[in-house]
Structure formats: C-alpha cells, structure tokens
Design a protein around this nucleic acid. Structure first.
Lengths: 224, 224
DNA sequence: GCAAAAACGATAGTAATACTATTATATTTG
DNA sequence: CAAATATAATAGTATTACTATCGTTTTTGC
C-alpha cells in the first residue's frame, strides 16, 4: 500500500482551493493536523496555524473558508483513506466472516503506524478522527453539507461494511445501525478510557474495545 | 411520580448561584432549554437568553460562569432525573431481564410527555441531551470537571444499569461498555435518522432504535 | 523570455462572542 | 428598619472568525 502512489481525491466542495495543489496547501494540512491534535479543535485557530506555517491567516482562508470546513475535509480524507484500507484488507478473502472481522479491526483500532501517505501523519489524523470527528457533523449546517456530499466517504464506508454483514445474515434488519454504532461507539470508548473510565471497562489487555465490538457483532448475527 | 414533589439536587460545583433559589434562576433554566433546543448550543448565547428573560447578560453570569457550565448543569439535571425514572420503572420487579428491558426503554427512547417537573420542560430537555450532551464532556476541560464530580449522575446511571446486566450475566466482562454504547449509540441513531439517514436503517415503525439496542443487548448476554 | 494571471504576504479592519467591572436601584431578611 | 443581597443598566476588554486592500512574488502559457 505504501508504494502505490495513490491519490486521495477529495470533493471540491470541501475546499476553496485544493490544498494538494501547492506546498502551502500541503503544509496547511499537515500542520493543522499537528495543531488540532495538540490543542483540540476548539482552541485551534487559523491565526495559530498561520504562526506555525509562517503565513498570514488570510492565506489559509484562500484554501478553506472556515476551520469547520477544514475539519470536514480532514474527516473526508480519513474516510476515503479508510475505504482503501478496508478494500485492501478484505480483497481476495472468501469468507465474509473473515472480511467482517478485519473490517471491525480497522474501524475500532486507532492507527498505530504512519504509512506516510505523502505529507499526512495518519496516526495523528486517526486520533483527531476518534476524538473530534463528531464535531464535523454535529452542527446546524449538517443538512446543507450533507446535500453537497461532504459526508459521502463516511457513508460509503458504512455501506460497504454493512454489505458484508448482509452477506452473513441476509435478513438482518439493522446493518447500518450496527456498523455506525460500532464505529462511533469505538471512538467514544477510546475517549472514555482516557477521560471517563467509569463509563467503560478497565482493561489490562489493550484490545478490549476491538474484542467487545467483534463479539457484539458476531453474537448479534449468530442469533439471527 | 408527578406529585411526589421531588427536588432534583444538583452539585454546587455546577453553578455560581443556585438557579433553583430564585425566579430569575428558574427562568434562566427554563428559557435556556427553549433557546438551546431552538437555535442549537453553538448559536446559544447569554445575550440572546438575556433578551428572552428581560435581564442583562451580567445577571445570567451570576448564576453560571459560562454557557458550557450551564450545559453541564442541564445534563446533570437530566441524568439525576433519569436515575429517578429508572428507579421507579424497575422497583418491585423481580425479573432482572424485565428490569433491564425497562431500563433500555428509558435510555433509548426520547421523552414524549412533559411531566412538568416544576419549571423544566422534560421533552425539550431530552431533545437537547440527545443531540447536544456530547458537547458537555467532549472538551479540553473534561478531566478537571470530572474530578470535581460534574458527571457523577451520568456515571451512576451507567453503573446502576450495568449492575442489572451483571445480575443476568455475572461473568460478563463489559457491562459498562455495553450500557454506555447503548446510551450514546441511541442518541446518535436518533440524530442520524434525522440528518444522516444513510448511517442508520430506515424505519416504518417508530421503535426501531429501541428494538435494535434491546436485541443487541439480549443477544449479547444470551451468548455469554 | 515575457506578459498576464494567479498566488502570496503584509496589514488593517469589522462584527460578534464571551466574558469582567462598576455603580445605582430594588428587594429580601434578620 | 438597617444591612445584606440581588438585580438592572451600562461600559469595557480580549479574542475570534472572518473580510478587504494592495503591493510583491511566482507561475503559466505562448
């Protein structure tokens, strides 16, 4: 996967000027990932970003019309990239159960190795997605942005994994619910483990979140 | 429950001056519920609230030191109230499965009837909790606020339902995960149904979210 | 290799937000 | 009824999230 030279293509709705098209644009992306993961999305401002990249705020605004749109861009990048990861992990595997298992792994475990997809640190990006992505669609402008297709990549991911679920249990009524519950749930459980441990279950072993959702899904489907 | 004259007591960490102690305080609470559910938490400001209650911003600040603290107060009120609802719904029922079922109902269905707990509109409040409560603990100040006990009521709710789960399956490893996944998941599925339907499953019947989580939990436990 | 276009940097400015501070008036309460 | 407390009215501040202008640099298309 490292050397395929894939281009993650992001819908032009999500930027004013394609950040992939210039050095400044690329450094806006890579440094904003660092800055958001450092200070959180609330405290992240284009002014601070400007200082980091030695450019004025106004230059950042030429690429993204607001910090919110930038976050939506980052989530879209992440889900497009995750689509590829899912495709690679499940291709050539016959057993749908095996494919589902691999998919659950990808959806519930944070990324640990930076494949260095060009200028993007995927480890930090996945941390941002896990802890901040909900803010990308929990706004008053969801409907409008959804119409413009800003969340297509995420929806495709949910759809493709739901399709595997339906291979295993063709009459199952809630495939999308099950998968979006798993994705969002895993993100939150990671957050709880770090900040509100009373809401989760303390784990000596690292993989308890993955194990929990794997078991949850397979138990559910086996009783269908 | 209506006529018990219960007082929901909220920890004094969550206000500068107890809003329950004066007319102004009570109208701050009731009108902020209306305003937040109307314009969303982001667009909610103490200035707009001041206009609604015919008082200056500065008076609101005497009760709550920020709009964030006010949101935490509202969620704390909701979970304290929900604790009572759970207790009433499950008391005198021997079967733990029956108690769990009733609890799931309370946790996953939005409130439809305003019991009119004094000045608080519980229907609107539950809508706020379903769509905005995540913003109360997804901040950089979680740890600090958690230490002060701001999220105790929520944790007690998760604990008490987890205890029922453990009655049914004493060796189950993930009771808190299961319950917090259900609570947060149900909230999100309601949001998805309204704004991002591709992430959920379209329902002719109204109760599909409740049914989904009920089935999820009982299938999980029956395989233990 | 040069003109036109595009991108960028530097700077200024604005409306709104999230508060804080001050003081005078009204209300409560012991 | 005096003292304490609560409230209203008003002003002010730092920060945020932008928008606007303009001169300089860089890119590009011929």
């Amino acid at each position: 996967m490292k050397n395929l030279n894939l281009q993650i293509e992001i819908s032009s709705e999500l930027y004013a000027k394609n950040p992939n098209s210039s050095e400044l644009g690329q450094s806006i992306i890579s440094k904003s990932i660092e800055l958001i993961s450092e200070v959180g999305f609330e405290a992240f401002t284009f002014k601070k970003l400007g200082l980091l990249i030695n450019s004025p705020e106004s230059s950042v605004y030429r690429y993204f019309k607001s910090k919110h749109v930038l976050l939506v861009y980052l989530t879209s990048w992440y889900w497009t990239w995750t689509e590829y990861r899912l495709a690679f992990a499940t291709t050539n595997i016959n057993s749908p159960k095996e494919r589902l298992k691999k998919s659950i792994e990808i959806l519930t475990k944070p990324v640990l190795v930076d494949n260095s997809f060009s200028y993007i640190n995927e480890v930090l990006l996945s941390e941002i997605i896990f802890s901040e992505s909900i803010k990308a669609y929990h706004t008053k402008s969801v409907d409008e942005e959804n119409k413009k297709g800003c969340f297509k990549a995420y929806k495709r991911v949910v759809q493709s994994v739901s399709d595997i679920v339906l291979e295993i249990a063709p009459n199952f009524q809630y495939p999308h619910m099950l998968i979006s519950t798993t994705i969002e749930g895993a993100h939150q459980q990671h957050y709880f483990a770090e900040h509100l441990p009373a809401l989760t279950d303390f784990d000596k072993e690292k993989d308890s979140i993955y194990k929990f959702y794997k078991q949850l899904i397979f138990n559910f489907l086996s009783n269908e």
